[in-house]
Amino acid sequence: MRNMVSDAPRTTLTAFYWAFILYLLLPLTLMMAMSFKDANFVAFPIGDWTLDWYAKVMQDKQFLEACLYSIMIAAASTLAATTLGTWIAMLIVADGIRGRTIIFALACLPAVVPGMISAISLRIFISTIDMPTGTAAIILGHTVHAVPFVVVMALTRLRSMPRNLVDAARDLGADGVVAFFRVTLPYLGPALFGGMIFCVLLSIDDFVRTFFLGGYRPTLPMLIFAKVQGGMSPEINAMATIVLVVTAAVGLYAEFITRRARTR
């Protein structure tokens, strides 16, 4: 009886789920398909197919430079954010710390402030400390953006850590620093790895902070934004497709790694 009643909603929901998947994937699929169009303008139907746009993108110096620049910024900000985020998380779980909640709220602040406002406040901030716009400012901005996510991920893992691991190390004569590097850090490993990949994607994806903090050297999103505003061409589609495939592969890999770590 019950199953008969719940069958109709079940079918509807299943259909809805797949319709939603279609909604998510269709625009991206169309965008990728368009990158193979053998014409100078973006329009359906596609008609003739070609790989020329990819050849063109791969020779586009501007694109390759933007890729390298984005990767460099992502690497630097990820490294900084992971270090700081872990450090903050260690402070939050430490014994005898007063104002734990305040520290945690502070650590999460950049994740709650809308991106645009965060970008503007950082732009003002770097000007008050006489820091020029450019690479260092972008890295700083991306680091601020990424720290809350690392803190949350590290905290989740730290809370599941058996206390006696560190106690045992301390009993055996390791001081706090040694215990951290030899016991806590290895235990945090998988969570931090997932967090780092997330930071990389966050940084490569970021537009608004880079827009306000950047100099004249475009990162990938800036380049794509400038190209889209400058007029449509399947070349942008090819560019976006390459970026999409690479970031999706990285994301999938990270998902795989963290999932394996979780089930272990």
Binding site: D205, V250, G251, L252
Partner: peptide, 9 residues
């Protein structure tokens, strides 16, 4: 899956 593509893409 779609969310590994950036905001702009």
């Amino acid at each position: 899956v779609p969310f590994w593509a950036g905001e702009l893409i």
